[in-house]
Amino acid sequence: MERAIREARDHGDPYIAEGIPLTVFLSVIRNIIAEMASEYIKEDDGYVPSFELVHRILNHFGGTSRDVEDMVSNVSIIGEIIREKKLKEHKLPRSYVANVGAFLSFWVNMGEENIRLIKNRDNPTLYAYCLDIEPITSILSHVHASVHISGTLSPLEEYRDTLSLPQSTVLLSYPSPFPAENRAIYYVDDVTTRYRDISKDDKILEKIAQYISGIWEEFGRNTMVFYPSFSVMGKILEHMGDYVTLGDKSGIYREYKSDTQHEIMEKVVGFKGRRGAIFHAVAGGRIAEGLDFPGEELEIVIVAGMPYPKPTAQQKALEQYYDRKFGKGWEYAVHAPTIRKVLQCVGRLIRSESDRGVAIILDRRAKIMRKYVDIRLSRNILSDIGAFFGER
C-alpha cells in the first residue's frame, strides 16, 4: 500500500472521484485496514464481515456502494495507465496501484465461496480465502477419465468430496509394495500436544522433550522430529537443554519459518551427509513433503504431537463451510488434513525396498491412525525401538 501511494504521487496523484485524489483514497484504505486489524484479529487472524470495508469507505467519503465500486474501478484504470506508460518507456510494466485496484475490486465483488480475513496485527494485511475449490477442479468433470495416485490421499472419501468428484468414483487403497517388516510405527499414550492439556500442565512438553532426546541419544541414528507448529517446536526445545543451540556443526539441524529455500536445502544436504544427526522440522512444512532420505540418511521419525490445525478464523470458516456442504465439518477440515500430515511425515522413512525405519508418534490421540496404518501402543519405547533394530 505504501508503494502504491508513492507511485500515485510520482504519477501526478490523479483524482479517482470528484475532490478525491488517489493518494487520499489509498491512505484512507490503509488506515481502515489498520483499524480493522485492531478490532478483528484475535490471535493469528480475524474474520471481516462481507461489507465492512465498503461501509467504512462510505463513512469516510459518503455516497453509495456504487460510488465505492466506481472509485475502485478508477484505481485499476489508473494502474493500467501507469503500466502502459512504463511499457512505452521500456521499463518493467509493473504497477502497485494496479495491484491494489485489482485486489480491492475482487474483495468488493467476491462471492460466498470466499471469506474475507485480516492477518498480521503489526503489518495488517487483507486476505481473500477460497473455501470451495470446485471452480478449479471442475475441469475434471470434462475429461473421459482421471486417475489420482498418491501414498497420502487418505481419507479417500474426503478427497473425493472436496474435489467434487462423482460419488461413483472408484476408491481403492493398496498395501505398500515394500516389506512390512521394514517399518514399525509406535505411539505413546502418556503425552499430547493438545492445547487444553499443555496449557494446564507444562510438564507434558517437558516429557515430550525427554522422549525426543532419549531416543536420539540412545540409538545414534539419523532422526527427524516433526512438530505441529513452529510455536510448539520452540516450546518443546526450551526443555531440551543447551544442546539445541550447538547448531549444524554438531549434527543438530532446525527448520525456521524465516529460512529461505537455499538455507533449507543446505541443512538437508548437511543432515543427509552425517550419521547420528537430528533434524527438527514442522509437519506439513518443506521438509515433511517431497524429500527422500534413503538408507541410513533417515532411520527414525518422531512426530512430536498430532498436527491438528490451529483454530484460526480461516480454519473455523472452512469447518463451517464443509459442515454446510457435506455435514462433515470436523472430519473434512480438521481430521483429514491431520491424517495426511502424519502420513507425509512417516512416509519420509521408507522410499525403497531396502529402507528400514521406525516412527514414533508422541501423542495419545495417535490411536486414530489405526484405520490408516499398522500402529502399536508402546509401553517402553526405547525397548521397542531397540528390538526393531536388533539391538535388544
Rank of each mutant, 00 (worst) to 15 (best):
G111V: 06
N120L: 13
G276H: 03
R196N: 08
I57F: 02
I236W: 05
I136G: 03
G46H: 09
T169K: 00
G270T: 09
D202Q: 10
S383Q: 04
E2S: 08
A387Y: 11
K42N: 06
G12W: 06
T245C: 01
L87T: 12
L172C: 03
V188D: 01
E255H: 07
R160C: 07
Q315D: 09
P135G: 10
I41S: 06
W107V: 00
V225A: 02
Y321G: 01
D10T: 10
E134R: 14
V188N: 03
L298M: 13
G63T: 11
G101Y: 13
E297V: 10
Y96A: 14
T169N: 03
I16N: 08
R121W: 04
G295I: 14
V54G: 05
T137N: 08
E266M: 12
P307M: 04
R66Y: 11
Q314D: 11
E263K: 12
R364Y: 14
V373A: 05
N123K: 12
E266H: 02
S173N: 08
L156I: 07
S231F: 15
R324H: 12
T260P: 08
L87C: 04
N31V: 06
I350A: 05
S76Q: 15
E18P: 01
K316H: 03
I33F: 06
T23R: 12
E134M: 07
T64G: 11
R376W: 02
F103R: 08
I302H: 02
F219D: 01
L117K: 04
A4S: 10
E331V: 01
V24D: 12
I198S: 00
M306P: 10
